[in-house]
Every structure is written in C-alpha cells, then in structure tokens.
Amino acid sequence: MAVYLDDKRLVKQILAGKEEAFDRFFEENFARLYRFALVRLSDDPDAAREVAQLVLTRALQKLHTYRAESALFTWLCAICRNETSDWLAKQGRYREHIILVEDFPEVQAVVDSLQIPEQMSPEHHYRRVELLRLIQVTLDKLPPKYGDVLEWKYIEGHSVKEISGRLKIGDEATQSLLARAKRAFAEVYTTLTEGLDQQWSEIRQS
C-alpha cells in the first residue's frame, strides 16, 4: 500500500503546532475543498465556504487518525462528502438527482470526445459541460503547484516568464514543472473520464 510521505510529514508538523505547516495545509486545501463543495451545493458560495470550513475543522480534530494511506486531499474529500450530505440534510435540501461523474466508483475515459461538433444535442452539450468541468476537478486533484501552473499557463494565458516570477524560480524550472504537470494531468484526467460514456448509457437505461 502506498504511503504518502510528504502528507504524513505535513500532518506531523501540523499536530506539533508548526505555523508554516498550518499555513500550507490551509493554502493548499481550502480553495480546493471550497470548489469540491461548491459543485455539490448548487453553486451556493456561502454554503460551500461554510462546508469547507467545517471540513477543515473536523479534519483537524481527526488529524491524528490520518494514516497517509491516501493523499491528504483525498482524505479531506471523503470528509467533505459527509459534511456536504449532512449540511444538505440539515437545510432540507437533500437532492437525489445530482450525480457527479467523479463520484462514480468507476469512471471511464473519453478524452477524445472533446472534439465535439458545433451542432450539439442536449446530451452532447451536457457531456461537453461535464468534460470541461472535469478539467477543473482534475486540476484540483493534482499537487497544488501542478494545478496552479497549468491554470496560469493554459487557462489564464500567462507566459512562462510571468509564472517563473510568481513562483520565484527560473524559466527552465518552470518549463520542467509544466511538462511534469501536463503528464500528471493527462493521467488523472484520463482516469477520471474513463467509462463516462458507459456510465451515461447506464443512467439512460435505468
């Protein structure tokens, strides 16, 4: 079983009261958890913020139980799922109909279905929106720095030089970081989208 050593070390430092460790924990996870909750809470930013805050406080209370057998963010997402359900139940807003593809136990790849014709059926349109949303999900699943550089470079259109300045590293290091980030993105995205077609066809048949 894989052990996430970096996360394990971070958790140890957080529990030991190291300020920098707490800052890193918060910086790397709050915005990602916020987005994770946002899409599950009908894009309600206040609710997402509240749930993300709850997740982080609950996580801190249980942090000593973290065994580093999954990535820390994955562990936080598991807590977030529970907190989101509880929050919706408390608000009387439990929704049975919203099912997120990334929440399926098995999702399958359709990276190539990104080349979608302009004339789209509603189903195609939905698929396109979902696939594009999965890009954001994937960026959040990557190590935070990978997600950030990809977003800055290819979504926000910053130059390598600008990104180097932001990260306070050289241009070559940035290029290398981007290359590794792209590889990681392709891997995670492919995994996430695997079987999307099959799952949709199952939904249609059910």
């Binding site: 709050f30 916020y34 990104l114 890009i135 954001q136 990809l150 470079k153 290819y154 926000e156 392709a186």
Partner: peptide
C-alpha cells in the same frame, strides 16, 4: 500531438472559482 491536444483541452476550461 498529445501535448497539443492537452493544451487545447486546458484552454477550453474556465479558471477555477475561488472564495
């Protein structure tokens, strides 16, 4: 080609929402 299509794919997405 895979790099190019990946970059095209990323360019289609919107920036991630932030609190």
């Amino acid at each position: 080609n895979s790099d190019e299509s990946l970059e095209q794919l990323l360019s289609k997405a919107a920036p991630r929402p932030v609190p």
